[in-house]
Amino acid sequence: MEIMTAKNAPLLDAIAGKTPSRTPVWFMRQAGRSLPEYRQVREGIPMLDSCFMPELLAEITLQPVRRHDVDAAILFSDIVVPLKAAGLDIDIVPGKGPVLADPIRTAADVANLPILDHEVTEVQEGIKIINEELTDQQTLIGFAGAPFTLASYLIEGGPSKNHEKTKAMMHGEPELWHALMQRLTPTIIHWLRGQINAGIEAMQLFDSWAGYLTEKDYREFVLPYSTEILESVKDIPRIHFGVGTGEILAAMGSAGSEVMGVDWRVPLDVAAERIRRENGAKVLQGNLDPAILFAGTKALTKEIQRIKDEANRAIAVGDATGHIFNLGHGVMPNTAPDAITEAVSIIHS
Score class of each variant (00 low, 15 high):
I3K: 00
D13H: 06
K18L: 11
S21W: 02
A31H: 06
R33A: 10
S34I: 14
Y38I: 13
R39N: 15
R42V: 05
G44L: 07
I45T: 14
C51N: 13
P54Y: 13
P54E: 09
E55M: 13
L56G: 13
V65A: 12
H68G: 01
H68V: 14
I74T: 10
I74D: 05
L75K: 13
F76L: 06
F76Y: 13
D78M: 06
I79D: 13
L83H: 02
K96C: 09
A108S: 13
P114T: 11
I115M: 11
I115R: 13
L116K: 08
D117Y: 02
D117E: 13
H118Q: 14
E119N: 12
Q124V: 02
Q124K: 12
I127M: 06
K128T: 06
N131D: 04
Q138A: 04
A146I: 08
P147V: 03
P147D: 10
F148Q: 07
G157R: 12
P159K: 12
P159G: 14
E164W: 14
P174V: 06
L176P: 05
A179N: 13
A179W: 12
Q182V: 01
L184D: 02
L184M: 04
I188Q: 04
I188H: 03
W191C: 01
L192M: 15
L192I: 07
G194T: 09
Q195M: 01
N197E: 13
G199Q: 12
I200A: 00
E201H: 03
A202C: 05
L205H: 06
F206G: 14
W209T: 06
L223W: 04
P224A: 10
Y225S: 07
Y225F: 15
K234P: 00
K234S: 15
P237H: 07
I239T: 08
G242K: 01
G244Y: 09
G244E: 08
T245Q: 07
V262W: 03
L268W: 00
L268T: 08
D269Q: 03
I275G: 02
A281T: 08
K302M: 09
I304C: 02
Q305V: 15
A314L: 07
V317Q: 13
D319H: 15
I324V: 15
F325N: 10
F325V: 00
N334M: 10
T335K: 10
D338M: 09
D338H: 11
H348M: 08
S349T: 14
